[in-house]
Nucleic acid binder design. Structure first.
Lengths: 370, 370
DNA sequence: GCTGATTGGGAAAGCGCATTCCCACTGCAT
DNA sequence: ATGCAGTGGGAATGCGCTTTCCCAATCAGC
């Protein structure tokens, strides 16, 4: 038994397909009460479900929102995805998910697939990169996105504008003040941290990471500190772990070198106060913390550490992680809404979404009292 | 500029749409080399992207896989989603995501939406429930799923069969041996835990939760322990937290009552050894642990605790959580594959996926040495 | 009671593609 | 030279729906 069609419903109700269509799927013209009733009854006696593909073809709009993330299992993206999902629901649309591991080539492919499905809008989360090896991929991605926009699509971008995008009206970026927030974080930290700062960053060229690094350095400079050394590794937990391992070795070395003095200074003498680590995201921070711990170092005793994002699942981590809270769900919602609003032709200035802001959240991992 | 169509490409290449279709989208008939080349050039000079909706309409298959989860931000579901995503990619399909908070009514709606989009298969993760208030919703959900199956759809179910499903060939359940694993966990725990066991479960009627509770009790019984008391609360972190708060109070009371004796016994005398808490999933366990900690209790000193799932993001939690490792990604993959295989008409017995198994993983949170 | 405006329903033309059917042509064997 | 299978391309149909256009019937206004 194949799914029943509008025509069957119409026949059963004794009306034309046109009329059936008008009553079942909101049309401007409302058929008479009696007829409408007949059609409706016929419809659910047959268990009629409209074929969205056909509807889409006819109306040329699909009710689909494409979402591109690096990794849906990463809580950062999962939170954004939840927001997107909610916004989609408001618009009575469904979301098509693509995970790309951040590879521009895959992202391009995803965009093409979304375009093929005539997604009404697409939301692209996850940092763009400007790494040389991604250059070509980025260009293709931008071209694909541009084409999508020129064909009437709208894309909501989380964070940074897409590199090389030229289609004017199609892009709607939700700006996340990564740099400012990182600067503020640095400012607050300098108040309590006496030792040197070290930054664990993602690969160079990853915008989100670069912004946060830059902001943090700026904050340090403003506070009269010298710039932090920057360790680069993968933008995930294991990246953080690796960097953490390197730092652990260094901390231990420093301690050994200076261990001649009395035991009053906890992290060696020689002017080397306890270092403060800033990892550009929470997941990396957790990885780094795990590495330190595995090397017998304790936080905040032997080193302090701060992250970024304030991932909900990680809030129960101990010592509680100092970080910058970002309204991830809201970010996802806004990206989705802004793209949709433009899609609907509503004036973008009207009901513009409030700018994203974050909140410095100092917790145990950077306490210096102990 | 609207997206270009097959017809335009054909015209530019000087061939008929039929031929263009044959060369651009794999058909049984392969046009000649020269013509194929002409068409392909025309296609990408126009930036042609096939309209998947139209293709779907014509072929009546959409290349879509519907995925239903309770909450994509829950790491459990996120991990499954990742597996589904991977399997979808193998099949060159895209996944449509729906989050339903576990409400059968929403799930029914999601199924209908998937059916409307003619999803080739749908994967439904997240525990079904048999709670009385969900009864009606469940029936409707089952009806909707049945209808979807009768219309040729295939559904992959994670965990428990859908209640009330009658369509024979359409369902493919990936069985997770929750009960057995919980029993094994109990068995292993009884070896080291001397005190009473307490179970923090989800709402009664949630299959996953019920299975784990039942299995755990069975394991206890087998080891000659008396059944654990079962505390019920929400199947998420805050549920665990609440229950944890209640337990904390109880532990403190017990300790106060028996605090007359010498300080050698850590958790009061009076025969009340330190209790062992089994939370039916990791997230709840973390919540409970947080509650205990907030009440000044320490794990495993004042109480031990174990979870279930071995959520990756939670592995860095300290004390490390004893739990049961479940191959969540693999579960997602299998659910997706089994539904797809049936869809493709491949013999299901052939290349049948290996049964899911878990692994008891004891860590610090249940250590009794300290 | 007649005209013009309005309403309410149906017929039909696509939306973009796959696919079946048909036809012209080639190459081979007879 | 003639017939045949085989090959490669095009015409046409239909997937299920929306929407424009058209037409009959109703209503108001004079």
């Amino acid at each position: 038994m194949a799914a029943s069609t509008l025509t069957e419903v119409a026949r059963l109700a004794g009306v034309s397909p046109a009329t059936a269509s008008r009553v079942l799927n909101g049309s401007a013209r409302k058929p008479g009460q009696d007829i409408a009733e007949r059609v409706r009854q016929a419809a659910d006696s047959l268990g009629y479900i409209p074929n969205a593909q056909a509807q889409g073809l006819a109306k040329s709009s699909s009710g689909l929102i494409g979402l591109i993330v690096h990794d849906i299992a990463d809580p950062y993206f999962a939170a954004i995805a939840l927001g997107v999902q909610e916004a989609a629901r408001e618009q009575r649309k469904m979301v098509l998910l693509a995970t790309t591991a951040g590879a521009p080539a895959d992202e391009k492919e995803a965009v093409a697939a979304f375009a093929a499905r005539r997604a009404d809008s697409i939301v692209i989360a996850g940092s763009r990169s400007s790494r040389p090896e991604d250059k070509e991929g980025n260009a293709e991605l931008a071209a694909e996105l541009d084409r999508y926009c020129r064909n009437g699509g709208h894309v909501g971008v989380v964070g940074h504008p897409v590199v090389g995008a030229t289609a004017a009206g199609g892009y709607h970026v939700v700006t996340v003040p990564n740099e400012e927030l990182a600067a503020s974080l640095a400012a607050e930290l300098t108040a309590s941290q006496e030792g040197d700062f070290v930054i664990i960053g993602g690969p160079e060229g990853l915008f989100t990471s670069d912004d946060r690094v830059r902001g943090f350095q700026r904050g340090l400079a403003k506070a009269g500190r010298h710039p932090a050394e920057v360790l680069r590794s993968a933008f995930n937990r294991s990246g953080g772990y690796e960097a953490g391992l390197a730092l652990a070795a260094r901390i231990k070395d420093a301690r050994r070198d200076g261990s001649s003095g009395a035991g009053s200074e906890r992290a060696g003498s020689k002017g080397t106060k306890r270092i403060c680590i800033f990892a550009v995201n929470d997941v990396m921070a957790i990885g780094a913390a795990a590495a330190l711990r595995s090397e017998g170092l304790r936080i905040p005793r032997d080193a302090t550490i701060a992250g970024f994002d304030d991932i909900e699942t990680l809030r129960d981590f101990r010592p509680a992680l100092s970080t910058v809270r970002l309204p991830l769900e809201e970010i996802g919602r806004q990206a989705t809404r802004s793209a949709a609003r433009a899609d609907a032709g509503t004036d973008d200035a009207e009901g513009a979404t409030s700018p994203i802001s974050g909140q410095i959240t100092l917790r145990r991992s950077t306490e210096t009292a102990a």
